[in-house]
Design a protein around this nucleic acid. Sequence first.
DNA 1: CACAAAAATCAGACCGGGTTCATTTTCAGG
DNA 2: CCTGAAAATGAACCCGGTCTGATTTTTGTG
Lengths: 252, 252
Amino acid sequence: MAGLRERKKEQTRQRIAAVAWRLFAERGFEAVTVNEIAEAAEVAKATLFAYFPTKESLALQGVGDDDLAGIVSRRPAGQSPLAALRAHFRALAAGPMAGFDPEVLVSRIRVIFDSPTLSAAANALLYEQRQQLAEALKAEAEAIRDEGGQRDSGGRRDSSGRGDSGGRGEMAAVLMAAQISASLVTLQEAFFRRLADGASLDDARQQLAEDVELAFSLLADGLEPHTDHSTTPHTDHSSTPHTDHRARPSRD
Amino acid sequence: MAGLRERKKEQTRQRIAAVAWRLFAERGFEAVTVNEIAEAAEVAKATLFAYFPTKESLALQGVGDDDLAGIVSRRPAGQSPLAALRAHFRALAAGPMAGFDPEVLVSRIRVIFDSPTLSAAANALLYEQRQQLAEALKAEAEAIRDEGGQRDSGGRRDSSGRGDSGGRGEMAAVLMAAQISASLVTLQEAFFRRLADGASLDDARQQLAEDVELAFSLLADGLEPHTDHSTTPHTDHSSTPHTDHRARPSRD
DNA sequence: CACAAAAATCAGACCGGGTTCATTTTCAGG
DNA sequence: CCTGAAAATGAACCCGGTCTGATTTTTGTG
C-alpha cells in the first residue's frame, strides 16, 4: 500500500518544519509565535502540536542524534570505549561532513545560539546523550567485571534494592561518561561557534581535528602533568586541606 | 535607620518562599500553581513575581551558589586548580555540612528530583557555574603563559574582535573546566540521590568522600592509565574498599 | 503633624505556549 | 457508494509571566 495518507502526513510535517525554519531564520526564535507558524503553514495550532511536541522541537530537529552509546557498544573488539570515540570524531573531522550545506548549517547554528531558550534546550538534548553514554559505559564496566572474575571486594553487594546507584564501579562509569560527554559537547560547541563566527567550513574542520586530539589526550592522560602521584595515600583523616604536590596548574 | 520597609519586604519574601515550599513539598512542584502560592501567601501574583523572577526560582533558592571559580582563583599559591578543588570537596565531605537540617535538605532534593522541569533548571544553574569555572581556568592558563615567558604561537593575538574562542590554550582550559565541572556535578548528583533514596547523612557523606577521591583520580590521571599500577604495591588501607576504577580496554 | 515623593501592592487585562474536546473532514476497504 | 477510523479543526481553556494604572503604605522633610 502506497499510503496516500502517510505521504500527506509526512508532507504536512515537512511543510510545517520548513515554514517554521524560514520564520526563525528571518526573525529569530523568540520573535515568532506558534500561532504564526500554524497560520503560515495553514494548519491548526492543535495540528502543529500533534506533529511537534514543543516549539523548541521545531527548531531542534536532528540535534543530539549522534548515538554515542551505540558507538561505544558497537565498537570493534579490543578497542577501548575512549579509543572508539576518538576514532569516530577523528573521522568526523576529516570526512566530508555528510553533505551538509554550510549555508543551512550556519543559519541553524545562528538561530540556536541567538536564543537562550533554544541553547538551553539543545543542551538538554546533549545531556540525554550523556545519560545514554553513561549507561553504555556502565554496561561495559559490568561486563568486564563479570568476565574478569573479579573478587568481591569488601563483601557487601549493593543491597539497596535500586541497584542503580550503589555500585562503586558504576560511579566510575558515570564519572567517565560525564567527563567524556562534557568534552564532546565542548568540542561541538567550539566547532559550531567558529562556524557561526564566520570561519570557513574547512578551517573549522581543521581546528576541530586539533581540538579532538587535545580533548582525548586530556581525557586519556589526565589534567595534571605526569607526575605519578596516583598512589598518593588519599583518605587521610587529618583534614588539613594542604596538599603537598606542587604541580604546575596547567599543561601548555 | 532601621528600615521598616526593608524588614517588611524581607518578611514578605520569606513568607512567600515558605508557603511555596510547603506546597511544593506537599503536592510536588508541577501540581502547584503560582496563583495558589500567591493566594496562600496573601499577595498578588504581580507581587510574587516582583520577588521571584520565575516559579522555578522559588524552588531553587540557594542552588548553585558554590563559587567554584572563586575556589580556583583564591587558592593558595603553588597549588594546582585541580588540587584546590579536591581539597575543597574533601573538606566538604568531611565537614559538618554547614548546619543543614537533613530533613529539610532531603525534602528539597526530593521535590527537585521529582520534577523534570526543576531538575533541568537546577542543571542549568550548574551549567552557569561551569562557565565561570572555565573563565577562571582560562585566566589561569593565560597568567601562566604570560609569566612563563611568552613565545608567539602563530603571531597575532586575537584579531577577530571577539577574542574569545581563538586560542589553543583556551581550548584546553575550556575542556578542563568542562571535565571538572561535569565530574563535580556528577558527584553532587550522586550524593543527593543517595540522600533521596534514604541513606543517612553520614553514610552519604562517607560515600561522597570516596567518590571525591575517585573523581579526582580520574581527572588527574586520565581514564586510560598507560602505566599499569593496577597491581598496586600498597595495600588498601582505608576502611572502605577502594575501587578499581580502571576500565580495561580489552573486550573481546 | 502634615504632606508629598517614593516605593510597594493590587486587581485585572493581556500574551504566548500548550492541552482538551467535540465536531468535521479525509481516506481506506468492502 | 458506504462506513468506520484516522486525522484535522477551531474554540475554549489552563498556566506562567508581563503590563497597566490605580491605590495604599512608608518615609523624609518642613
